[in-house]
Amino acid sequence: MIMLIRSIIHSMSILIFLMGSLLFAMPDRRASLSTATPTGAENENCTVTINYLDDAGDLALAQGTVYFTIAVGTNNPITATGDYADITEEGDEYGVGAYTISPNMVTSSTLTIGVVADKRYEHDEEFTITLTNATGSVNLTGSPITAATFTLTNDDDLPKFAFSTPTSNEEEGTAKEIDVVVEATGGDVGRDVDVTWSLVDTETSTADHASDEEGTLSFTEGEDSKTITYLSEEDELHEGDESFVLNLTGYGTTGSSGSQTAHTHTINDDDEVPTVGFSVTEMNKDEDHGSVTVTFSLEGQTTSATSVSYAIKSEGTTATSEGDDPDHNLSASSVNFSA
């Protein structure tokens, strides 16, 4: 009899346990993202909510594990790694990768994606969050939204391009590097930019230039300076210092003009000043010799006409003499050399 009573009590305990388990078992919940097209901005963290829904589609307590991934988008994808990553995992913030989250008697979970603060002018960029699996009392069966694509709207200014200095100078025949920089007052380069430039002669001419008179500087993401290398012709002409102007002329649709878009460069003339003299320093002729030719010589080259004045210093002779014929017919004048 005692054994029978014990058996009945044991059976009732099992029944009560099973009934309790059924009574207190967590019903299945569907994990669903709150929206399929969340929006975000550069320099601000993005958030999206995972809701846990009952059969009626209402929020309900859930307990289990949800698996999800964050990946680059298909249209204008974010940069995932390296120096120019657009989102990053830090602290409680998620980056690109595969993750899990474990709801414990909550109706929703909020995911925060760490957006990197930058100044790069770039495309509106995308990344996607996808719910891939769920366990415990959570599942994805019939879930309304299992993937969401974030669009990070660019909020940075166009990069501004300018010469680093307003002027420069260099001796002729020597190369000079002239820098074009991205100014801090604009955005950084996040999209390719072609900056065009051209040379305008003011005191120079094409014959003075041994390098290109126009060109293009191609900037890529993260670059902040480029160099124009100018070389003048080396010659033997004394022409004085000469200047020209370099102008930045275009930036496409991904750049803009900065504060210094013109640069004046001076070619320092290093040729000696031409000298003028007589071909001989002394001549002796008989009085009745007749005419005498005196030759002037110019040593060196110049780009401009040269005029040299001369004077007559008489030593024992005169141009006119009382009662006599004049000794010579010379007078002060000048000689001219063409360029």
Rank of each mutant, 00 (worst) to 15 (best):
F296R: 10
T266Y: 08
V116K: 09
E214L: 14
G91Y: 10
T306G: 10
H10T: 14
S314L: 06
E170D: 14
D324W: 12
T295N: 15
E315Q: 09
S304N: 10
S279G: 12
T146Q: 13
G57P: 00
I228P: 10
L18I: 07
A25Q: 15
L152V: 09
S218Q: 14
L199F: 00
A98R: 11
G186L: 00
L140R: 02
G240S: 03
I228T: 11
L15A: 15
S108I: 04
S331M: 10
E236G: 13
N133Y: 04
F17V: 15
T206E: 15
S168C: 06
S334W: 01
E177L: 08
L231Q: 02
A339L: 15
I16P: 02
E287Q: 12
E233Q: 10
E234T: 08
I267V: 07
S331H: 06
A60G: 09
H328N: 12
K176Y: 01
E239C: 02
V292P: 01
L246G: 02
V335I: 11
V245C: 05
I113L: 13
I87C: 06
I267K: 03
Q301S: 08
G40P: 10
S34M: 01
F278E: 08
G250P: 04
S13L: 14
D208P: 09
A305N: 11
S334F: 09
V182H: 02
V200F: 07
V292Y: 01
I9Y: 07
S333H: 06
S32Y: 06
C46I: 03
S331T: 07
D192R: 14
I16T: 13
G82R: 14
E183Q: 04
T149V: 07
H123V: 04
T130F: 04
E172C: 11
L158D: 00
P166I: 05
D194L: 05
T39N: 06
F337T: 00
L22M: 15
S338K: 13
D192N: 11
D235L: 05
E242A: 04
S334Y: 07
D325A: 06
G57K: 05
I70R: 00
M3A: 14
T266M: 01
S225I: 10
E203F: 13
E213I: 15
G136H: 08
A162L: 02
T254S: 09
N104C: 05
S168D: 13
S164P: 04
S297Q: 09
E213N: 15
L152N: 04
Y84P: 05
L23P: 04
D327F: 07
D286N: 08
T132H: 11
L217M: 11
D224A: 13
T35L: 02
I267C: 01
D83C: 05
L298V: 05
F150Q: 06
D235W: 06
G222T: 08
E213F: 12
K160N: 09
I129V: 15
S32D: 02
K226M: 14
G316C: 04
E223G: 13
S314G: 09
V280S: 15
S307H: 04
D118I: 04
R30C: 05
A148V: 01
H238F: 14
I50W: 03
V66P: 05
T254L: 03
P77K: 03
E42I: 00
V193R: 02
I5D: 15
S7T: 13
E214N: 15
A71T: 09
T153R: 01
P103D: 00
I9W: 06
E203R: 12
E172G: 03
V292M: 05
T264N: 08
I312M: 03
T266F: 03
A60S: 11
N247E: 12
S321R: 14
F296P: 02
